[in-house]
Design a protein around this nucleic acid. Sequence first.
DNA 1: GGTTTGACAGTATGTCCATACTGCAATGCT
DNA 2: AGCATTGCAGTATGGACATACTGTCAAACC
Lengths: 221, 221
Amino acid sequence: MPKIVDHEQRRGEIALALWQVIHEQGIDGVSFRAVAEAAGVSIGRVQHYFTSKDELVVFGCRAMVSAAEQDHGPDPSPRGPARARDELADFLCAPLPLTEGLRVGSSVWATYLAKSVSHPGVAAVVAEAMQGRVEVTATLLAAARGTQEVRGTREAREARGDEQPAPDVEVAPETARVQSTALALVSLSEGLSSRILAGALDADEAGALIRDAVDRAVHTD
Amino acid sequence: MPKIVDHEQRRGEIALALWQVIHEQGIDGVSFRAVAEAAGVSIGRVQHYFTSKDELVVFGCRAMVSAAEQDHGPDPSPRGPARARDELADFLCAPLPLTEGLRVGSSVWATYLAKSVSHPGVAAVVAEAMQGRVEVTATLLAAARGTQEVRGTREAREARGDEQPAPDVEVAPETARVQSTALALVSLSEGLSSRILAGALDADEAGALIRDAVDRAVHTD
DNA sequence: GGTTTGACAGTATGTCCATACTGCAATGCT
DNA sequence: AGCATTGCAGTATGGACATACTGTCAAACC
C-alpha cells in the first residue's frame, strides 16, 4: 500500500487557496495554475484531488458552508432569553466582514451567490445554507422571546422523520411571525454585509444596526 | 465623413448583451466572442466600441446603475406622506427579481458586487450607487413621516458645494435616525433580493416583508 | 465624383488554460 | 526483499481567448 495522506485535509488546504484566489482575483481568476500557486503546491497535486475545475469550485462552496456552520453553528444548549438574545445578535453579526479573514469569507460567499444564478449545483448549496440560517435565527429568536421552541420547516421535520401536517393546515400565526421576523433579520444582516464589502458602510455601524433590530424584534410581540 | 451612428446607443446594445452573458454564464463566461454572439453582431464590432474586456465590463456596471436610476430614480415632486410611503415601498421593491427581466438585472448586480471586491473600478461605482440608494430612501422616509426633508450625506453636500459642518458637530439625532432606518430598509431589501436570486425565497413573501418593514419604519418615531 | 474617414469584418498571434497522460518515488503489505 | 498501489510532479496537447492588425465598404463633405 502506498503513502497514506488525509484526503479531506488536502482538499481543505486546496479549498483555502481557492478562496484566496477568488477573493483576490474573482471567480474569473480561478485556474488550476492560480490555485496551485496560492496553495504553494504543484498543479498536478490540485489536479490529483479535483478532476475538474467545476468540482473544485463546488467543493469550495460546500466547504465554506461547513466551515461557517462549524464556526457559529446552532448551539443546542437551551439558555435564558437574555443569553439567547446575545447569541442571536452574535450569530447575525458573525458573517459581517469585520476582520480581514471574515472579509475573505464574505467576499467568497458573495461570489458564490452570484455564481449560483448560472450554476445549479452551487445554487442548491447556497439556497440550503440560506434556509438553514433562517431556521437557526428563528430558533434563537423564539428562545430570546422566551416562548416555546419554534417549529422547524417542512424540510427539517422530514429530516427528523416527523409526521407532516396536512398541506392545507397553516402553521400557527405566531410561528409564522417568528419565521418572518427571523427572515427579515438574516436578510438585514446579509444586506449590510454586502454594503460593508463594497466599502459603502462601516462595520461597526452595521453591528449597531443589527443589535438594534434584534432588540426590536425580541421586544415586539 | 463616414457613416454616423449613435455611439452611445451601440455601446448600450452591447452592454445589454453583456448582461445577458453574465446572467447566463456568469462573469467567467464573458468574452468578446460570447458577447458578440449574444448581441448578434461581429466580434470586430464589440472590439470597435470597447478596446478591452475590462472597459466593457466597467461600462456595463455604470450603465446598469444609470438604467436603474432611470427606471426608479428619485421623484422630486413632493407629495403627501401616504403617497410618499407607497413610493418608498415601490422603490425598495423595485430591485427585487420579480420578473425575468428584473431577475437578469438583479443577478448581474450581484455579480458586480462580487467583482467589486477584486476590482477597484467596479467597487467605486457600486459603492456610490449604494450610497445613492440610501439617500433616496432616507428622503422618501422623511417625507412619509411627514417631517422636513432630511439632510444629505457629507458627499452629497460636497457635490452641491455646501459648507461642511465642523467635524465634531454631529447631525441632529433625528436626522441620524432617519439615515439609520433608511440604511436598514435598503439593506433588508438587498438581502431579500439575494435570497430570491438563490431560490431560497418567494418574491411575493419578500414584497410583503418590505411593506411590513416600511409601515413599521414610518410609524415608529 | 472623388476623397476622406469612420464603422466595421476578418484574420493573425501569442498567451493561457483544462485536461490527459507519463513517470517516478514513497510506502506498506507479504 | 520485492511488489503493488497511491501520491504527485511534470509535460504534452488542443482549444479558447485577448488583442493587434489589415482590409473593405459606405457615407458624407468638398
